[in-house]
Each structure stands twice: as C-alpha cells, then as structure tokens.
Design a binder for these strands. Sequence first.
DNA 1: CTAGGGTTAG
Length: 674
Amino acid sequence: MGSVLRLCSTLGLLRRGKQVHGYVIKTHFESNDYVVTGLVDTYAKCNCIMEAEYLFRMMPDKKNHVMWTAMVAGYSQNGEALKAMECYRDMVVEGVESNQFTFPSILTACAAVKAVDFGAQVHGCIVRTGFEANVFVQSALVDMYAKCSNLDRAARVLENMEVDDVVSWNSMIVGCVRQGCEGKALSLFQKMHAKDMKMDSFTYPSVLNCFASMKDIKNAMSVHCVILKTGFEDYKLVNNALVDMYAKQGSLDCAFQVFNHMPIKDVVSWTSLVTGYAHNGHHEEALRLFIDMRKAGIYPDHIVLASILSACAELTVLEFGQQVHANFVKSGLKSSLSVDNSLLTMYAKCGCIEDASRVFDSMQIQDVITWTAIIVGYAQNGKGKDSVRFYEQMIASGTKPDFITFIGLLFACSHAGLLESGRSYFASMEKDYGIKPGAEHYACMIDLLGRSGKLVEAEALLNQMDVEPDATVWKALLAACRVHGNLELGEKAAKNLFELEPNNAVPYIMLSNMYSASGKWEEAARIRRMMKSKGVNKEPGCSWIEVNSIVHSFVSEDRGHERTAEIYSKVDEMTLSIKEAGYVPDTSFALHNLDEKGKELGLAYHSEKLAVAFGLLTVPPGAPIRVFKNLRVCGDCHSAMKYVSRAFHRHIILRDSNCFHHFKEGQCSCGDYW
DNA sequence: CTAGGGTTAG
C-alpha cells in the first residue's frame, strides 16, 4: 500500500489515492503510521489539503516525526506558509525531532512569506542538530535567505557547501536578479560555466530574466543558442522566459517567433507577449492579443488582467475595460490588489472617477500604488481638493508616500490652485520622507506658481533646480507666461522647447499667439514662418466619442460623418438655445483675418462641438456624454459646453490633452483654469 | 511513510 500511495502522490493521482484510502478503511489500517503518512502526503500533493489535515488530526496524540513532516510539507506546498509554520511550531512544542526532510519544507514556507527571523531560528536548530551538511537543507537555506533579501547570508551558506549543487546556485541567481543585482547574477552564471557545472531547465529562465532586466541582448542571444544546442528548447518555462526577454528588449519579432514555435502556450506565454506589445506602445495590438488568447481557450489570471486593464487605461477605451471588469467578476477569481489597482486607474483615466472611487472603497487593503492612483485620479478629474484629502488619509493610515505619490499630489495642488498646500508638501517630501524632487515635481510647482501669478518665484525655482529642467518644466513656465503676458520669459521657455522637442508645434503657436496678443504682428508672423521652414506642423484638432463600442471621430467643420446633416442642425440648435441663456461666442479664439460674423462661424463647428452634438443625438438621456480631444479644448468651446450642460441637462465629460472637464449644470470641474 | 530551485504586472 505504501508504494501505491507513493506512486499516487508523485503522479498526483487523486482518484486512485481515494480508492486506496477506501481500501485502508476496509482493511482497518487507518491507524497505521506508515499508511496514514502516505495518505496525508498523497492528499496534500493532490491539492486536497483539507483531507490531509483531517487525517492528520484524527491520528492519536503521538504522531511520529515523518507524519509531522508530511503535514508541514503539505501546507508549504499548498501555499499555506503560515499554517506550515504553525504546524512546525506545534511539532517542536510536542518535542518531536526534525530531520533532514523537515528542514527544507519549513524553510520553503519561511521563504514564501519572507519570515527571515523564523528562518534564522530554524537555521540555529539545523546547526544544533547537525543537519547543516545535507545538501537539501543547504539549498533550502540559500533559497530562504536569498528570497528574504539577505544575499550575504545566502552567499555564505553557498560558499560553505562541499558540492557544487545546481539547485543552490539557481536559487542564488534568482535572489540576485530579484534584488536588482544583475551583475552578481551574471557572474554566478559565468562561474557555473567555468566550473563546468551542469545547467538544468531551472537555470535558464532565471538567467534569461536577468538579461531581460539588464537589456543585454547580445549575451541573451548566445544563451539562446546554448539552449538550442543543449536541447532545452522543449521546456515551456524556458520558452516563456525567452518570449518575455525578447519582448522586454523590444524585439517583438523574435518574441513572436519563439512564441509561435511553442507547442503548448500558457497564460504566462501570452502575458509576456501582451505586455511586450503594451510596453512598446502598441496598446491596440495588446488588446487584440488578449482577445486571441481568450479565443485560444486560455483563462486569464490576475497578472494578465492587470496588464490588459492598464492598456485600456492608456487607450481610454472604457467599454473594453468594463467588459474585462465584468469578466473578472464572473470568472470567480479572487480579487487582488494588482487587479483592483489597475481597475481603479482604468476608471479614473477614462473619466469615471465615481467608479474608481467605488473600486477604492471595495478594497480590503490599500498599498502606496492604490493611494497614488486615487490621488492622481481625482486630480485628473478636476477634484484636487479630494486628492489632498486622500493624501492626508493615506498618511493617517500609515502608508508612506513615494516619488510618484508626490507627483500626483503636487499635480493636484496645481490644478486646484492650492498654493500654500503645494508649497508645504513640496518642502515636506525631502524633509519628512527623504525623497529628492525630480523634474516632474518642479514642473508641478512651476505650474502652480505660474497659475497663482507668482512668475518671479516660478523662475527662481527653475533656476535653483539641481536636476536638468526637462520639457515639462519649460512647458509649465511657458503656459504661465502666456496667461500672465510675460513675453520675455516666455521667449526663453519657448526657445528651450524648440531644442528639447523640435517637432512639437505647441510652443511655436503659443509664442506666436503671445506676440499677437501684445500687438507684435511681425514677430508673430516670424515665428509662424520659422515653424513652417522647420517643417513643424500643427497637429489637427480632433475629437471622438465612443457609442456602442464604435468610435466616431470629428475634425473641425467635418462633413464626413454619415449623419452630418442631423449633427449640424443639432449644433445650430445648441448654439441658439445657449445664446438665449447668455452665451456669447468668444471670437478671440478665432482666426484674425476674418470679420466678426466670419469669426463666429469659424468657431461654431469645432471638432468638440460636433462630437458633443452627436452625443446629444445618440447617448440616451441621463447618461453622461464622454468626448475625447487630442489637443487642449478651446476657450470658446469650454464656455459653450458649460451652457450646453445646463440647457440640455447633460453631464458632459471632455477629456483633452491636459485633463478631464466635467461639465454639469453650467459649471466645469476645472474651475475654468486649465 | 516525509525534503530544495524557475517564467508573466504595477
């Protein structure tokens, strides 16, 4: 019976194991130590930890050390590290001695939950009982220390080993990679070669992972050759690591090639490709691959869901994201921090701050990413004061803010015009949390100071930066100069932008407009000519709206849509009724070389107005109209939208290149400052 | 009768 059970446990044969269990009961062997140990082990290996636990507990008080070990191992192998530790503790309390089988199991459990203190105590017992020469015990120690970020102690155990054990070396390499010590990992791998150690199918995934984070394509390709030569190309995990490594390098063709040659692909293979495409900016392709994965019958896991939701967030495709959310709920997968964080971000980026907030409220635990996401989300949606409220809650909850949190927080302060809070948070980040401000933080501060009319202070802050000002910093300064009519400083900012972003038309247009506004027509024309001669083109303004999963896009005075006639008469109806309510077209946003009537006509059919009119025609009453624009919304359109939201009792959400505008009952969430 | 290591996200 013992050998049959051994076979069942090794092969994971649950049904045959249950048959043996029935036979054990029939033949009254249910109190035989050897037999019950075998059953405990079989059930544990078949992921039936409850049954294993039941049999273990039903045994009379005195259980031998082998059965205890089987139970500890069972918990550990079923991902119940804490229970494994509890069980081991009970074993020690009962006075049962551990052996060379017990220690590796309990150390694995410690490694899984990074319980380095518990692990170190076990290490003490190992030394006391003389098991430290056992190679299984040693490798488990190396792995435990490495996983608990204690590379030094791991290395010490490794160095004291008498044999060159590939398992221990593999563990050490993985530990180094996870700690960001890729160089150490690589030199270990080279040492393995020098020692002529036999690599196995576990070595390659770790080493490839190392090359992936080092972006070392040359070495990676030669290892790929070795893999082919030594016959390791049939291992799924090796191939998954290859796909991931090539995808992370941006060599999507190579990644795809390896992927296509794999006879069996699992969710990890697909995820590596999906994230590879997403990271290289091909978000649509990532969504398409996700659909292909589902068609291939692969069920998504938490990781692929988190990636796909962040692709949805990047593309602001709300309906796709909602479907992914719905499928996640239906799938019965347990909710997880990473998926919830991605859902939260997706909703916030799509302008659904209420849904983002609902996700936040539903979460059992929040980490720094959660808090940062909600802070940024509220700020992007024009509710900077709520962001600040969440930041204070975060601090009260004991979560430490990081570099990114402060970008979100300062962004919130600047968009809400919270000058004093912004100043004090900016000072606090280095003083209280030791985080050195980066260009991103300075850009927010300069934006905040600029909006508050403190141009002198903004310039002073720029001059005292200890990091090189990047384009975002100069853009913030330029925007401030435009609002406050400071030509001289504006020229300086624009000139820096011409160099940093030579293909960006925005600084040319802004500077030219600033010249026009102060009557310097010659200068304005000169900038336009300069722009033309450098071949820089203004990106055409474009707005779009998603209705029933179809995207309808419009440019200014667009007549290409099949319902053009209806759309234009809706725009005219819109204009007429908001004029009655007091709207006056702001012709300062129109072209200069037209008379008043011509200017007004030029404004009337801007892309965002066409998209909103289409929304009024197609989106059911009561539902919000969500429009996206590639550029900043024009001032006249912004004013018109406020009136439309009141006259038509509609919540209009317009996401432009800068932020979300929530128009409701004649008001905009941005407070008219954007 | 009982034991150790690998790949995917943010």
